[in-house]
C-alpha cells in the first residue's frame, strides 16, 4: 500500500525517428517512436520520456506531430525534452499532448525561465534535467558539477545546490543524469543520486549507466530514486519491462504490476 516506484523508458529521437536503435524482434518499424511508445506502455512502462535531439527547426515540427501521435494512443504520462527554451516551446509541447516538459540547458543559461515556466504552467509539468559530473578527487568529500553540451562544458555550478535552487524556482521533478556513468552500463552514480534526493522535496528520476536489473534496484534502494530511467537495456531487448518490474518487486520495491 504505497506509491509505486516508476520505470521510465527513454526514447532519443532525431527528426521524428528513434535513434540509438531499438531491437524488438516483432516490431514493424524499429525507428517509429509511436509504435515503440505503445509497445512500452502495453508492457507496463509507468511513463515515457521522449528526448528530441533534432537540431533543425523543420525537424522540430516533425517532433510536434510525433508527440501528438503518441499522445493520442498512449495513455500514460509523457515527458518531452530537448530544445525547450521558451514558454512558447512549452505551450507547443503541452498542446501537442505532452504532460511534462524537461528543461536542461535553458535552465542553466537562464534559471528564471524555470520560475516563469512553473508559474505559468504549474510545477507538475516542469521537470528540470541536470547533467552532473563528479569533480572532487579521491580523499575529498564528494562534489558534482553541472555540465552542458553533453558533458563537455563545465559550468562551475554545484549539482546539489543547483537541484535545491531549481526546486525553489518551481521544478516539480528532477531528472538527474550522471555524465560519468551515461553509456557505461556500470550502474547509476548512487552517491550523486542520494545526495540530490536527500536535499530536495520533489521526486528524483535517476538516469545514466543502467546495465542490468540490479542497477535499477540499487538506484531506488541505495540512490533513493523515485523513478529510474533507462534506454538501451530495454531498447535492445536485453530485459523487458515486466521482467524489470518483477525483479524490483522481488527485492521489496513497490511497483505497479
Amino acid at each position: 500500500m504505497a506509491l509505486a516506484k516508476r520505470i521510465i523508458p527513454c526514447l532519443d529521437c532525431d527528426k521524428g525517428r528513434v535513434v540509438k536503435g531499438v531491437k524488438f524482434l516483432d516490431i514493424r518499424d524499429a525507428g517509429d517512436p509511436v509504435e515503440i511508445s505503445k509497445r512500452y506502455s502495453d508492457a507496463g512502462a509507468d511513463e515515457i520520456t521522449f528526448l528530441d535531439i533534432t537540431a533543425s527547426s523543420e525537424g522540430r515540427e516533425t517532433t510536434v506531430h510525433t508527440v501528438e501521435a503518441i499522445a493520442s494512443q498512449v495513455f500514460i504520462p509523457l515527458t518531452v525534452g530537448g530544445g525547450i527554451r521558451t514558454l512558447d516551446d512549452i505551450r507547443t509541447m503541452l498542446n501537442a499532448g505532452a504532460d511534462k516538459v524537461s528543461i536542461n540547458t535553458a535552465a542553466v543559461f537562464n534559471p528564471e525561465f524555470v520560475r516563469e515556466a512553473a508559474e505559468r504552467f504549474g510545477s507538475q509539468c516542469i521537470v528540470v534535467a541536470m547533467d552532473a559530473k563528479k569533480v572532487s578527487v579521491a580523499g575529498e568529500p564528494d562534489r558534482w558539477e553541472i555540465f552542458t553540451h553533453g558533458g563537455r562544458k563545465a559550468t562551475g555550478i554545484d549539482a546539489v545546490e543547483w537541484a535545491k535552487r531549481m526546486v525553489n524556482y518551481g521544478a516539480g521533478e528532477i531528472l538527474l543524469t550522471s555524465m560519468d556513468r551515461d553509456g557505461t552500463k556500470s550502474g547509476f552514480d548512487l552517491a550523486l543520486n542520494k545526495a540530490v534526493s536527500e536535499s530536495v522535496s520533489v521526486p528524483i528520476i535517476a538516469s545514466g549507466g543502467v546495465g542490468n536489473l540490479q542497477d535499477l534496484v540499487d538506484g531506488v534502494l541505495l540512490g533513493q530514486a523515485d523513478a529510474v530511467l533507462a534506454a538501451s537495456i530495454f531498447h535492445f531487448g536485453e530485459y523487458s519491462i515486466p521482467q524489470a518490474k518483477r525483479y524490483m518487486a522481488d527485492k521489496g520495491i513497490t511497483m505497479r504490476l
Binding site: 506509491l3 516506484k5 510545477s123 507538475q124 516539480g172 522535496s201 520533489v202
Partner: peptide
C-alpha cells in the same frame, strides 16, 4: 516543517507523483 513521512518515519516526496492504489 512541511515534511511528510510514511508509517516507518521515512520522508515522502511532495508532490505526490506517480501510481498509487
Amino acid at each position: 516543517t512541511g515534511v511528510l513521512t510514511d508509517a516507518d518515519g521515512k520522508r515522502l516526496k511532495v508532490p505526490h507523483m506517480g501510481w498509487n492504489m
